[in-house]
């Protein structure tokens, strides 16, 4: 037994050494000090839980970053959060970016509010932006806000107009105040287009359980239930879980509405005919503009709201076959929201 253990240990260690020796030409890692300086601007971005690959909110931020990388020739670095981490970890992540010369730094999601406040005070010369939060105020912090309820209002109207059954669905990821404002806008829009419409609201998870943003299987099950219960158009605000909605839509041959990005463009071909439209929350534009401003040194601190008026919010028309018959009505509503005739509720 003893010998066997020794031999196996020696073998494993040996193998590890051989492999590591052969991989010496591989990528080297550094500990965060310094780094190369050939490009003048280094842009840092920190995601909240969920991270890249949700084909929705976080990916939209990533998209803006990639666009900046291409057109502005800047260096980018994006870091993801770990499940169950604390404020300290977020603070250190932002600190790591700022201390390594990343400027500007973009924090994606409300959970960064507290940590950002502390880091922004420590690095007064670094420009920061935070998406979806206006509680942090500092001379070097830009708050990127979105009137997502306005866009949700429009797709709510679209859903009600497309519905033949008289029932439309809302599939929320987690019942956070943010997602509830999507729901409020959607319901109001649907009722505006058809006062008799029934809105079937379901959330995948609730409270502190954020799994609802990254659980396509559960999203699919719930969406199937909503379709079976009579809904024939469902709008999701559930991040990566929304992909489950599209799978359900294919199976039930019913309509779905995407969120944040134009999901018609990223969906699999089988799902495309069923995606009527997507509520566009242009996180990509916001991130790109902010980086561009930073590269010119023209960032403005404080709130910067993206809404229907400045096209920071909108609805997608990439599936003309599905949307064209209601487009005129939607554009009319859009005009009324912009000129203030309609006020969209927030909660």
């Amino acid at each position: 037994m003893r010998r066997a253990l020794k031999i196996s240990l020696v073998t494993v260690t040996g193998a590890a050494l051989t492999l590591s020796a052969s991989a010496c030409g591989g990528k080297k890692a550094d500990s965060g000090d310094g780094g190369d300086t050939k490009k003048t601007i280094k842009v840092g971005l920190a995601y909240d839980i969920g991270g890249r690959g949700d084909k929705s909110f976080n990916d939209a931020a990533y998209e803006g970053l990639q666009q900046a990388k291409k057109t502005l020739n800047v260096d980018v670095k994006d870091l993801e959060a770990t499940k169950g981490e604390s404020d300290n970890d977020k603070q250190q992540r932002l600190d790591l970016l700022a201390s390594s010369g990343y400027n500007p730094v973009v924090a994606v999601g409300f959970a960064y509010a507290g940590p950002l406040g502390k880091v922004a005070a420590k690095y007064p010369n670094t420009k920061f932006a935070i998406v979806d939060d206006s509680s942090v105020k500092a001379a070097n912090v830009t708050n990127l806000l979105f009137a997502a309820n306005q866009g949700s209002y429009l797709v709510g109207a679209a859903a009600a107009l497309k519905s033949k059954s008289g029932t439309v669905g809302f599939l929320g990821g987690v019942d956070t105040p943010l997602i509830k404002s999507f729901e409020a806008g959607y319901t109001a829009g649907a009722k505006k287009a058809n006062p008799k419409i029934k809105v079937d609201v379901k959330y995948i998870s609730r409270g502190t359980d954020f799994s609802g943003f990254s659980d396509p299987a559960k999203g699919k099950t719930i969406a199937e239930g909503q379709y079976d219960a009579g809904a024939d158009v469902i709008y999701h605000a559930a991040g990566a879980s929304g992909n489950g909605l599209f799978d359900a839509a294919i199976e039930k041959k019913k309509f779905a509405i995407g969120v944040d990005s134009d999901q018609y463009l990223t969906a699999k071909p089988a799902a495309q005919p069923y995606i009527v439209t997507s509520m566009l929350k242009r996180v990509d534009t916001a991130v790109f503009n902010f980086v561009e401003d930073a590269s010119k040194g023209t960032t403005k601190a404080g709130e910067q709201t993206f809404d229907l008026k400045n096209d920071g919010i909108g609805y997608a028309v990439s599936n003309p076959e599905a949307i064209k018959d209601v487009q005129a009505k939607l554009d009319e509503l859009k005009k009324q929201i912009i000129d203030g005739t309609i006020t969209v509720p927030n909660s």
Binding site: A15, A16, S20, A23, K27, G32
Partner: peptide, 22 residues
């Protein structure tokens, strides 16, 4: 050792990685 093997297999240098972590 296992981590070093995984790192090498994925094309990263284990020694500098461990150094950076430390």
């Amino acid at each position: 050792a296992v981590t070093a093997v995984v790192l090498s297999a994925s094309g990263f240098d284990p020694l500098s990685t461990f150094q950076a972590m430390l």
